[in-house]
Design a protein around this nucleic acid. Structure first.
Length: 592
RNA sequence: GGUCCCGUAGCUCAGUUGGAUAGAGCGACAGCCUUCUAAGCUGUAGGCCUUUGGUUCGAAUCCAAACGGGAUCACCA
């Protein structure tokens, strides 16, 4: 937005010192609040050819800019920093041209096709807090990339086959007595998860038994009857055994019903579902292909490997000796399928950083196979959510369940709203929507405000806040503005806003205007970095800025053009807040 | 052991990609509701940016080493 200044500075340098410089290389920063000015040119680099000290150089450029730029109201020099103050008229014009556009952000489409794969659950257990971070990140990244102009396809790869599902199935056969989600009054994913835990308990018991009979731990783990049953079941599944397939389908349906409920609650959705059961065979085909071309090699026991030692990695198994596929086998197949289905330029995998190695291997394998999509594979590696006790482990029950957590958040929203007496004037239906918006707003903002790359800590003992740097704070600011606007209409104030008459801006107004004008830059930055946190932080900054303005100046009590301007400012602020919240999947109620 | 990530206020996190006196929130303390919604605003206290070297006009930011924490290297997914 201010990049035209860089060009002017480059021109000034040309005039003054006869030096041609790249305008993009000029450092233009916001002026820190303790100094006077709107933006700052760092002039240290200019001293090399100005043959002057930093201060005279800055002064010379400042004077030259004054001649070139009518919108430059003032400048001052501190050491090597040239602080520029632009006229209020300039800021008002900038604001007005934005305000008069139809929406706060115009999407200019590029022709890039990007797939964002996220969620990718296993069907043997319900979703937990780690999945929530994954889903919210994936959803927000897809929104942000779309806002930046990409054609985005949201995909979900369901890990619906494998030994882990067989474990739940075996346990259900053994201990289930025909239990169903309906008979147990449980969400299907929770019911299946229960049997996964039961399997693990039975397995541990058998291991302990075998060890007491004199086996080593490794022997016991391999020889426990229940694990052998599970392995047999996996083989039966791959052989197409009817009974196994029927049970598998039934239990998976239970899980999908449960997941869909959770997804709906979270507000995430997908354009395309992939199922590992439908892609792993394609993976096997590619393995065969690579075996023939010599990318892979076979060991005497028939297992298939790739040697990545030359790339600083190890040898990696891509197909078991019994011919069944492993995790990476199906990923190789799915990568191909994604490309065939959508002709994508980029394939983003939103997957935790514990799988950094896996994706390094996947990309390397695709490269060695000369796949055209190899370079487009990008692992959006996000940090784990940890508890004060360490990592969450499903099998050990140390997880924060997604459904429980969302329910608690909505309950808290209700309690807080009621105790503040702010539930007046809502119908029952509206109330429940409101509590949903606020409770989930708090949860989503809490998870998304942190840089995705960093691991984060969640302490179940401390409830997620509704005050301060939070979702409800931003939502509240939006609702507050809506309240002002409602009143303004009640008073029959002018619907059309005319800013043609110039007047001066106070500090709070100016700061807010400057912040609002950054929206496009922030979206670009967030898209480039795949970081919803940038949007969350920006939304907070806008809300904070508005609240400071609000506490200091009245909108409705202002007069004439000032009132019109402030109404426009409030209107536009509300739109930006609503839009930025939308990008990170949060609703903005009009009243709270 | 190899590889990779991280270390900023008591706690949880920002820090505009190398710029000026390092910022927020929570928690603590002190103020502000006859005035547009107090889920708000203002102020105070709180820092050897883990340590040590290096690069340069200038380092929380880049490089190297040490220390501390984590992930990963499975015929699990």
């Amino acid at each position: 937005m201010l990049s035209f200044i860089k060009n002017e500075v480059a021109a000034a340098a040309q005039t003054l010192f006869g030096q041609t410089i790249d305008a993009n290389a000029i450092q233009l920063n916001p002026t820190p609040p303790e100094f006077k000015g709107d933006c700052t040119i760092v002039v240290f680099p200019f001293t090399k050819f100005s043959k002057l000290g930093p201060e005279p150089t800055a002064t010379a450029i400042g004077n030259q800019l004054k001649l070139q730029l009518p919108t430059l109201a003032d400048f001052n020099v501190v050491k090597g920093f040239l602080n520029l103050t632009l006229s209020d008229e300039f800021w008002l014009n900038q604001f007005q041209s934005k305000f008069n556009q139809e929406s706060v952000h115009q999407i200019t489409p590029n022709d890039k096709r990007v797939m964002v794969e996220y969620s990718s659950p296993n069907t043997n257990k319900p979703l937990h807090l780690g999945h929530v971070r994954n889903n919210l990140l994936g959803h927000a990244i897809a929104e942000i990339l779309g806002a930046a102009g990409n054609h985005v396809i949201k995909a979900n790869l369901i890990n619906d086959r494998g030994i882990h599902i067989c474990k739940s199935m075996i346990a259900w056969q053994k201990f289930g007595n025909g239990e169903t989600p309906a008979s147990a009054s449980m969400k299907g994913d929770h019911l299946v998860g229960k049997y996964y835990v039961l399997f693990d308990q039975a397995y541990k018991k058998e291991i302990a038994q075998l060890i007491s009979e004199g086996k080593t731990e490794d022997e016991a783990k391999a020889q426990a009857p229940i694990i052998i049953e599970a392995q047999n079941m996996l083989r039966d599944w791959e052989d197409g055994n009817e009974a196994v397939l029927t049970l598998w389908k039934t239990m998976n349906e239970w899980v999908y019903a449960g997941f869909n409920e959770t997804y709906a609650k979270m507000g995430v959705s997908f354009d395309k579902m992939y199922y590992e059961s439908q892609t792993y065979l394609l993976g096997k085909d590619i393995i065969k292909e690579g075996l023939e071309s010599g990318v892979f090699f076979q060991k005497p026991d028939n297992s298939v490997w790739i040697d990545l030692t030359a790339d600083g990695l190890d040898q990696k198994l891509v197909q078991r000796s019994d011919g069944t596929s492993v995790y990476i086998t199906q990923d190789i197949g799915t990568a191909q399928k994604k490309y065939d289905d959508f002709n994508i330029d980029q394939s983003i995998y939103v997957v935790g950083n514990e799988q950094d190695y896996h994706f390094k291997v996947l990309q390397l394998i695709c490269k060695k196979l000369n796949k055209p999509y190899a370079d487009g594979i990008y692992h959006m590696s996000y940090g784990m959510v940890e508890l004060p006790t360490g990592k969450m482990k499903s099998r050990e029950g140390t997880v924060v369940d997604a459904d429980d957590l969302m329910k608690e958040m909505i309950e808290s929203a209700k309690t807080i709203t009621e105790s503040a007496g702010k539930d007046q004037g809502f119908s029952e239906r509206e109330k429940s929507e409101l509590y949903n918006d606020i409770g989930l707003g708090a949860l989503k903002f809490f998870l998304l405000k942190i840089d995705p790359k960093k691991k984060m800590l969640f302490n179940p003992e401390e409830s997620i806040d509704f005050h301060g740097f939070t979702g409800p704070f931003v939502q509240y600011t939006h609702a507050r503005i809506q309240s002002i606007l409602r009143k303004a209409n009640d008073e029959n104030s002018h619907a059309s806003i005319n800013l043609s008459e110039t007047h001066s801006l106070n500090n709070e107004e100016k700061e807010l205007v400057m912040a609002l004008l950054q929206l496009n830059n922030k979206i670009k930055e967030a898209a480039d970095n795949l970081s919803p946190a940038i949007i969350a932080n920006y939304a907070y900054q806008i809300a904070k800025s508005f609240n400071t303005f609000y506490a200091e100046h009245s909108v409705l009590k202002a007069e004439n053009t000032q009132k019109e301007f402030r109404l426009a400012l409030a209107t536009y602020t509300a739109k930006v807040l609503k839009y930025t919240l939308h990008l990170i999947g949060i609703n903005a109620p009009n009243k709270m």
